[in-house]
């Protein structure tokens, strides 16, 4: 599922400082925020929406749960949200213990709920809705169109969209998969989502060193009809150092830039050397009869 305007969003932790700032931005943008959750603030109205103690107190359904919750509390919030069986949970927090993440994913899996993140900047569908901490409202960065963008990093994702928008290449959606080693929606799964999305004609992957998600995505990309273009960050990164993201580390036998670059190229994915090359590669790969 890629976020649409009609999707109802429940925001956990919307009453905090950052939660308030970003929930307000989301509402102003047109996101369909239907409620907020805070265990001790039930009954009040915040930013014009009702606050509940738990998802189970809601009388109406919701499609997306967005988590502005501190790392060690996220697991409980995810369990709470899962019980209402939304379609998607977006998990923003960084530094959630990996064992908690694996538990969250196993639970979400039993409820057939998709999880995005953790350590994601969220999801943006330009002109419609967004859930997270991306500058969706900045029309120099995001503009509606047919390019699907997937990124492990929020800041790099924003830069990629900026480069596309500058050349008139709008986005169907931006999907932040997150910078953690263990995440709910992998790059390959996000690629499948965009592959099946009728509004998307081409997908831009923004990968980075560490793990094997780009290699796995490349395997899927080789089977796709829609073109895929990529950029992989970390070519200049030293071996064995965590580059800011918990997941961005080159081990002696896994996660190198070269491996990712090679796998993507072999799968027929054009790989940009710098993000500013993306628009040109995208324009060349776009089917001629489908103007962006």
């Amino acid at each position: 599922m890629i976020l649409r305007k009609r999707h109802r969003i429940l925001v956990y932790g919307a009453t905090g400082r950052q939660g308030t700032f970003w929930t307000r931005e989301m509402i102003n943008y047109g996101a369909n925020v239907v409620g907020a959750v805070h265990p001790r603030k039930a009954g009040i109205t915040h930013l014009g929406v009702p606050v509940y103690a738990s998802a189970t107190d809601m009388t109406s359904a919701f499609d997306v749960a967005l988590m502005f919750v501190p790392p060690l509390s996220v697991k409980d919030a995810v369990i709470d949200a899962c019980s209402a069986e939304p379609r998607l949970i977006v998990c923003l927090a960084e530094h959630i213990p990996s064992h908690d993440v694996m538990e969250m994913l196993a639970i979400a899996n039993t409820y057939k709920v998709r999880l995005a993140g953790p350590n994601t900047a969220g999801i943006v569908t330009p002109g419609e809705s967004f859930a997270g901490i991306m500058p969706a409202f900045n029309n120099r960065i995001f503009t509606p169109g047919s390019i699907g963008v997937i990124s492990r990093s929020g800041s790099l994702g924003a830069l990629a969209c900026l480069n596309l928008t500058r050349e008139g290449l709008g986005q169907s959606s931006f999907f932040g998969i997150g910078g953690d080693p263990i995440i709910g929606t992998t790059m390959r799964e996000a690629l499948e989502l965009f592959d099946h999305d009728s509004r998307t004609s081409l997908i831009v992957l923004c990968g980075e060193i560490g793990g094997s998600s780009e290699e796995e995505a490349a395997e899927y990309a080789a089977t796709m009809h829609k073109p895929v273009v990529a950029f992989v960050a970390g070519h200049a990164a030293p071996v064995g150092k965590k580059m800011g993201h918990a997941g961005a580390i080159i081990n002696p036998n896994q996660g190198s830039y070269t491996s990712k670059y090679r796998h993507l190229e072999e799968a027929g994915v054009a790989v940009a050397k710098v993000p500013s090359e993306l628009p040109h590669l995208v324009s060349s790969a776009l089917p001629a009869h489908q103007p962006p």
């Binding site: 990124s151 492990r152 990093s153 929020g154 800041s155 790099l156 994702g157 924003a158 830069l159 910078g179 923004c206 980075e208 060193i209 950029f231 960050a233 970390g234 070519h235 200049a236 990164a237 150092k241 580059m243 800011g244 993201h245 961005a248 050397k273 710098v274 993000p275």
Partner: peptide, 22 residues
């Protein structure tokens, strides 16, 4: 951001320079 910082280092390398840090 981790991704943008790595990308900035990469761009410095791509254009023939050398980054002093992350």
């Amino acid at each position: 951001g981790a991704g943008l910082t790595m990308t900035t280092m990469d761009a410095v390398m791509h254009y023939g320079g050398q980054a002093a840090n992350f």
